[in-house]
Write a protein that binds this DNA or RNA. Structure first.
Lengths: 205, 205
DNA sequence: TTTAAATTTGACCATCTGGTTAATCTATTT
DNA sequence: AAATAGATTAACCAGATGGTCAAATTTAAA
């Protein structure tokens, strides 16, 4: 029973996750989710009272997973360069397995900005940066990163990783026409991105 | 009369544009658009037969505008560096005025990949690159751009410009907590981005 | 085996939504 | 001023959609 409980509820949750990611909150239909899980629509409301609650459950889990992927950077005992390489390798690999996640998250954050606070509140980014700064005090002297340009740097890193997936349909379509392969392009980006950034940040002596 | 015709049809088109960008195709309601334009809902169907047709009209115009912003790069008589600076200045300025466009476009392309071909087909990107290559044959020798890394380079440029707007809610929320101002960050990005890229591409002699 | 609780379902409902239609209003033409 | 064509509206419709409910079925406890 408890066994079966979890199976049904999990099946619902997983189906909801797939359908919501594919169609978004507005585009998803409760019937689709029920069909996808092979159950009656009323069961959705039995486990999760409303569409909103179901969506919230799905979204919070996904957003959590996504941000967890950033965490290891702060405790791994690596040099800054190695951390950058580590991040791009891990993060892009994760998105290769979940290519539709980025756009889904950006989109639902945009449509309901209230959600962001819940996720962002949990993180003390100032502290995170202070830790990072302390860990690499000497190293940082060789790079063009100042208090003023942290946002520029951070969003550049995030963008180089996320943007190819958020814009995948457009990029893939253009590349196909030019004779490039999108998957290979992604694979190469794991190295290209950190190389690019490290090169950009190095102070010209 | 013809005068009034245009006024009504334009009013509808503009209202539709706003509502579609704000809520997306799925989230937008014909009634919202009618209300926004201050007219009866039936009038929408009088001028544009269906929601799909109305959306298509809006989307094609927007996508067209967006891509036109990339065009000047290919005929302006500037150095590569200057073209990069020109692009970021113009493109980011354009998005400052239409901050919700990028996510809207990415989203609708994702939801209906068929649309992309219509837009992409019109552009012969191979030829565009050949032109660009010929224009800057000498200059390119100093940069780390090869046939193989063109996609990496192009998407990096696009991403550095577009990503901050696509992820604006998240970025702005985090920055607010860190004491940075999003608008100022965007303003500074017009220079930071080309600087960053040029630095990254310069061959270490 | 009986009983009670939890799970699953089919049928149903109120509301919303895109779309239609017949009638009214407006303006131009004759 | 009458007629005609186009613009605008109120009322309406069929189908979809989120959600409910009582009945049926399964599972666990007694």
């Amino acid at each position: 029973m408890t066994e079966n409980d979890k199976l049904t509820e999990e099946k619902i949750f997983e189906s909801a996750t797939e359908v919501f990611i594919e169609k978004g909150m507005d585009g998803a239909r409760m019937q689709d989710i029920a069909d996808h899980a092979g159950i009656n629509k009323a069961l959705l409301h039995y486990y999760y009272r409303t569409k909103d609650r179901l969506f919230n459950a799905v979204f919070e889990k996904i957003a959590g997973q996504m941000f967890k992927k950033f965490a290891p950077i702060f405790d791994e005992n690596l040099s800054l360069e190695e951390k950058l390489r580590f991040f791009f390798r891990e993060h892009i690999t994760f998105m290769q397995k979940n290519p539709k996640l980025p756009l889904f998250i950006l989109n639902e954050f945009h449509r309901n900005p209230g959600r962001i606070r819940k996720v962002v509140q949990k993180i003390d980014i100032n502290k995170l940066w202070t830790v990072l700064e302390a860990q690499h005090k000497e190293e940082l002297k060789n790079y063009n990163i100042t208090r003023e340009t942290i946002p520029q740097f951070m969003t550049t890193v995030a963008g180089m990783s996320v943007f190819p997936f958020a814009a995948r349909p457009v990029i893939a379509s253009i590349m196909e026409k030019m004779g490039y392969d999108f998957d290979q392009y992604i694979e190469e980006r794991k190295e290209y991105a950190p190389d690019f950034i490290i090169n950009a940040l190095k102070k010209q002596v």
